[in-house]
Design a protein around this nucleic acid. Structure first.
Ligand SMILES: [Zn+2]
Ligand SMILES: [Zn+2]
Ligand SMILES: [Zn+2]
Ligand SMILES: [Zn+2]
Lengths: 142, 142
DNA sequence: TCGCCAGTGTTACTAAATAACGTATCGGAA
DNA sequence: TTCCGATACGTTATTTAGTAACACTGGCGA
């Protein structure tokens, strides 16, 4: 992700926290920076490693807590099929994220789903949708 | 899943293996039976437990191998967001499965996706899609 | 008969995530 | 100001998920 996108997302995060009376603590901010700056989806334990030289002795709960917080704010999405996380530069409240993940270069493009599937079972009320497409991006198709 | 659906799926499995020159060995068959008969998505280690009284000393690779095999045949799908597995009674070659999972009762309904999303990034070629909707089924909405 | 090979057994390990509890910090109520 | 409760973070330990690597077997074809 580009530096400008990244810093915009950080500003958005600050604003969002203000609005909601949440605190973007140093750890949370640093994790968000790392996720946004990462080249492709990032594993929790890779974040942990990246965090450790600077934060001393971060343990799994540290990073998972930060990730949970950021996901709650919609600033980070989990890629379920990869057990990995991506930053989000869109502003969308909950759900609707549709991910296109290139298996070659790892880039992730996010779209806001044409959310409601037409073929849902009758009476089924959707709370949360996981939509992840794996394949090859334009650059890697050639 | 009902017994009749289950036994139909087992017959389909036999046929499919014949066609492809694969072998539906006792272990594979037993795992398929268990997955089909399970109430909702089933965890690999729960299968392992269910397998152990009868199979003696099944270890993780045993069940994961069977699951991989069955997924290859399209008889089992993995629910990525749950790290769990569901049986498939449809006949579809690869992909296209769209799952509706009730968070209350655990039932899973499968539809064949209105496959190609209209809002894919230009030039993105999809190999595999993960589509999982979580919510409440008709029976559990009241 | 020999050698291959798919399937399974087995050991050991890596990876992913959470439980449970202790500690620090801050802001509001008394 | 002091005390209290809440939130965030530290820490230890454990659970859950998945795989690597190698050994063994039995069937089948040369
Ligand atoms: Zn997003
Ligand atoms: Zn690519
Ligand atoms: Zn299916
Ligand atoms: Zn239900």
């Amino acid at each position: 992700m580009s530096r400008s996108q990244s810093s915009q997302a950080l500003e958005a995060a600050e604003r969002l926290c203000q609005e909601r009376g949440e605190r973007l603590t140093p750890i949370r901010k640093r994790v968000l920076e790392l996720v946004l700056g990462w080249d492709g989806p990032v594993k929790a334990y890779d974040l942990l490693e990246a965090l450790n030289p600077e934060a001393g002795t971060a343990k799994p709960p540290t990073v998972y807590r930060a990730l949970d917080f950021l996901m709650g704010l919609g600033l980070v999405h989990k890629v379920e099929a990869l057990n990995a996380f991506v930053g989000c530069t869109h502003s969308h409240d909950e759900g609707g994220a549709e991910l296109f993940i290139c298996s070659d270069c790892g880039t992730v493009e996010e779209r806001h789903g044409s959310a409601t599937p037409t073929n849902a079972p009758e009476g089924f009320k959707i709370d949360r949708s996981v939509i992840e497409h794996f394949g090859h991006c334009r650059n890697c198709t050639h």
